[in-house]
């Protein structure tokens, strides 16, 4: 295969891997900007992946699956908000609790309902999955060397969720930085007592932020089980929620840099798959594990202040109390 074809295919794989990461990272962005640590991304995504696959399998509709995924993830988000905002519980503990609980609950319910050893049935029917959309002329354009291939592989040929994730970035940038709601949301993550003094409910804003994050995780989870694969399997998020958190931090809690971080992390993932066992000139075979660990290492380096600086929202992780 020619080099540029290889590169274009690598970029197309990057887009597919980046989509759930980006959705979850933007979900985390809303939550963390309001001052609630987004450690429950993994659990909300996994819950949505199970619910959407289960509903799509039973109803035969991917769209109903999407609704179920969003509702499930938002219910988990509500639980998180209830623990962290209403009862001012430890946000790290709450996130871990949801992650662990859902990791067990998905396979448990799947076994009881479908009796397939903790999986949901394969989604094979028409309309059960979000399939790739082919833009007009994409197949014909493939023949034209570079621009045609770029059009066919990068612009066309993805499913609806991918395009949604792409437009989500400018939308969330606009919501967070250009609307009154966004201003208040950011303020509540930096200085909640100032927001409270202005007569705006801190709890209400944080609930809204966490619920938005739940809804987006719902889309991300649905993507995993009904678009990227055909059904739910045990632990199918495989740490993507934590990787999204890392991307959010690497993106310094800003939408466009977060997009960049997601693409970078997804690229390393796609590259690792491509480079499996391939000897490169000069360096030889690079162990796949090293490439896969790269996002985590980069995030630690960033947090350590060796690659720029990342300043978290000031009030993050601190439950708000009027009395202090």
């Amino acid at each position: 295969m020619e080099t540029y074809t290889l590169i274009v295919l690598l970029l197309a794989a990057t887009i597919r891997v980046a989509t759930p990461l980006l959705l979850a990272a933007i979900a985390g962005l809303f939550s963390e900007r309001s001052g609630v640590i987004a450690l429950g991304l993994e659990g909300m995504m996994l819950g949505a992946a199970f619910a959407s696959a289960a509903v799509a399998a039973v109803s035969g509709s991917a769209w109903l699956g999407l609704v179920a995924g969003i509702v499930t993830a938002m219910a988990l988000a509500l639980l998180l908000a209830y623990a962290c905002v209403t009862h001012r519980g430890n946000q790290v503990v709450a996130g871990m609790a949801v992650n662990i609980m859902v990791a067990g609950l998905g396979p448990s319910l799947a076994l009881a309902w479908f009796n397939l050893g903790g999986q949901t049935p394969q989604l094979e029917g028409v309309g059960q999955r979000f399939l790739a959309l082919h833009w007009p002329g994409a197949e014909a354009a493939r023949a034209v060397p570079l621009p045609g291939l770029l059009y066919a592989e990068l612009l066309s040929g993805h499913n609806l969720v991918v395009y949604f994730a792409a437009v989500l970035v400018p939308i969330s940038a606009w919501v967070l930085f250009r609307t009154r709601f966004g201003l208040r949301l950011r303020a509540v993550g930096e200085n909640p007592s100032a927001v409270d003094t202005a007569g705006i409910s801190v709890a209400r804003l944080r609930y809204q932020a966490v619920l938005i994050s739940g809804a987006l995780c719902g889309v991300a989870g649905t993507y995993l089980s009904t678009a990227a694969s055909s059904g739910f399997v045990r632990d199918m998020t495989a740490g993507k929620g934590y990787l999204a958190l890392a991307a959010l931090i690497f993106g310094k809690w800003k939408p466009y840099p977060t997009l960049g971080a997601c693409l970078l992390f997804a690229f390393t993932d796609a590259l690792a798959t491509r480079l499996q066992g391939v000897a490169l000139p000069l360096v030889g075979v690079i162990p796949v594990q090293f490439i896969l660990a790269l996002p985590y290492v980069l995030t630690v380096l960033l947090l350590a202040g060796f690659v720029g600086t990342a300043v978290a929202p000031k009030a993050i992780g601190v439950p708000y109390s009027k009395e202090k």
Binding site: Y82, H87, G89
Partner: peptide, 15 residues
Amino acid sequence: VVVIQGLVILFCGAL
């Protein structure tokens, strides 16, 4: 078992 572990963390910790 994992579900019960998660619930214990939820109730004894977060809630």
